[in-house]
């Protein structure tokens, strides 16, 4: 199991740089896991990347799990009502 730890912003400012990195990670790993505990900020661009990863995983017959969601990520997923669709257990890592 491979884990990729996202750190800092997951926003329009980092999306262009993160997209190839995250896709590479997804394609190179068999059971990818994304640690979101250090994501400080998340916006629509960030949310789109998360959606893209989930979709790409399904398309390639894999499953990517997101874990240790930070508060910023939870807020966005709740707002977009995608928590259940993504199906990852959410643990409040940082209170």
């Amino acid at each position: 199991m491979d884990t990729y730890s996202l750190e800092g912003e997951l926003t329009i400012f980092t999306a262009a740089q993160l997209k190839p990195e995250l896709l590479n990670f997804l394609h190179s790993s068999t059971a990818p896991e994304l640690n979101l505990s250090a994501v400080t900020e998340c916006d629509t661009a960030g949310l789109q990347l998360l959606i893209l990863l989930k979709r790409e995983a399904t398309l390639t017959g894999k499953s990517i799990s997101f874990m240790m969601h930070s508060k910023a990520v939870i807020e966005v997923l709740e707002l977009a009502r995608l928590t259940s669709q993504f199906g990852d257990p959410i643990v409040l890592a940082h209170s």
């Binding site: 999306a15 993160l18 997209k19 629509t44 661009a45 789109q48 977009a80």
Partner: peptide
């Protein structure tokens, strides 16, 4: 997919 374009 262009990460800076809005699709949602």
């Amino acid at each position: 997919m262009d990460p800076e374009t809005n699709y949602l």
